[in-house]
Design a protein around this nucleic acid. Structure first.
Lengths: 216, 216
DNA sequence: GTTAAGCAAATCCTGCAGGGATTTCCAGCT
DNA sequence: AGCTGGAAATCCCTGCAGGATTTGCTTAAC
């Protein structure tokens, strides 16, 4: 289990999740080799796996860079991701039980507290709560495969989702929508939960353009 | 482009697509090494990529075997896949143009001809048409990312979808539904196209049990 | 005498390292 | 502007080491 490949792989994945790597950023192979004291082979394998996941692109003779979507790619991924998140919310509305429901409401309240106490400050802190909310919904859907897909696709856009919360008012609106979605789920309103979640995750084209420009 | 890794990778992928490999079947590494005259590294990399795609599992010290879903995994993947196919049909109903529409109807008619002329015979021949139908719908959706996901997920269940057409009457019913879906798409009836496609792809639990048992 | 169990040894699998070769890109020169 | 030479990156190969599984032999018990 302590394979060299997985050490590097997990290191890169958590770097992505923490926002320490930005789209288009080059991955310094030699630095990673030195840092984790691994050879080129496991590093190469880790990068190949990341490429297979679509998180890394490897332009010929240019080294590995973090996946950075074009405008069309962004819209394509977003369209699918919104659908999957919506499906998760719909399934959660069918299947959620008492424990998952309680956990979900707890996260919703934490979101609200954060929005009330800190306003637009600490967007990264709020983003962690946001991730927890979506993860909890996906888990309540009771479909581990769906959970994986959402996690993988989410990683491709994570930097942009994160950047979104730097917009004034975005945190408060997100927290409001989280509560609405959670209440629909707990009320077992399948279609409404799905629709609202889809809308919640979707950006309009203008916002996409803004985000792409911001992370230039 | 003529990388050794990709040669092996594509060979395995087309073997899967052609139904020459069945779920749970072991992949003989040495045979592939001998067959394609490659070394262990490119083969290993090809298998790692297949594993990252979820098409291959590699139990410790057991070699590589083709992914074989448990009952729950099957249902999970199917649930997501049906959703994605439905989304593709819905998007196609929004976006389809003249050429894609003509191509789609041509495939639909080919399906009907096959069903009329050969009945329940030549299920593999019909399955190729079925693949073409779904591919055409996914392309008409105008979302290349969605197309990729459908293709990838479809591969995980391809052996089971293929086996389904060995049931008497399945081909005729499939051809009928293809026409209905195509007509809804051409009529731009988004929600109905999506709903019917989702239903078309879904199996009920009994069928799933049958298929899993059939492919032992 | 036969069978089963336990231990030891060997073989096979797998992951890692580092080197060699080929291809590509860039720069300098004609 | 085109060509040639060099440098660098990537891809592939093969050797090695660690570990697990299997096999075979021995011994003991029934």
């Amino acid at each position: 289990m302590a394979g060299q490949t997985e050490i590097v792989l997990n290191a890169i994945l958590t770097s992505i999740d923490r926002g320490e790597l930005s789209p288009g950023e080059a991955i310094d192979e030699n630095a990673l080799i030195a840092q984790y004291e691994v050879s080129r082979t496991p590093l190469r394998e880790a990068l190949l796996r990341l490429e297979a996941m679509g998180l890394v692109t490897r332009p010929p003779r240019k080294g590995a860079v973090l996946f950075k979507p074009s405008f069309e790619e962004f819209l394509s991924i977003l369209e699918v991701n919104a659908q999957l998140e919506g499906q998760a919310a719909g399934l959660a509305a069918r299947r959620i039980g008492a424990e998952d429901g309680a956990a979900l409401m707890q996260i919703v309240e934490a979101c609200e507290v954060h929005a009330r106490d800190k306003g637009d400050g600490d967007p990264n802190g709020y983003y962690a709560l946001n991730l927890a909310f979506h993860k909890q919904v996906a888990e309540a859907a009771g479909n581990p495969f769906l959970l994986d897909m959402i996690k993988m696709n989410g990683r491709k856009l994570i930097a942009y989702y994160r950047a979104r919360y730097r917009n004034p008012g975005a945190i408060a609106e997100s927290a409001r929508e989280h509560r609405q979605i959670a209440e629909l789920i707990l009320a077992h309103k399948v279609d409404e939960a799905r629709a609202l979640m889809t809308e919640h995750v979707l950006f309009d084209r203008v916002t996409v353009t803004d985000l792409l420009a911001a992370l230039g």
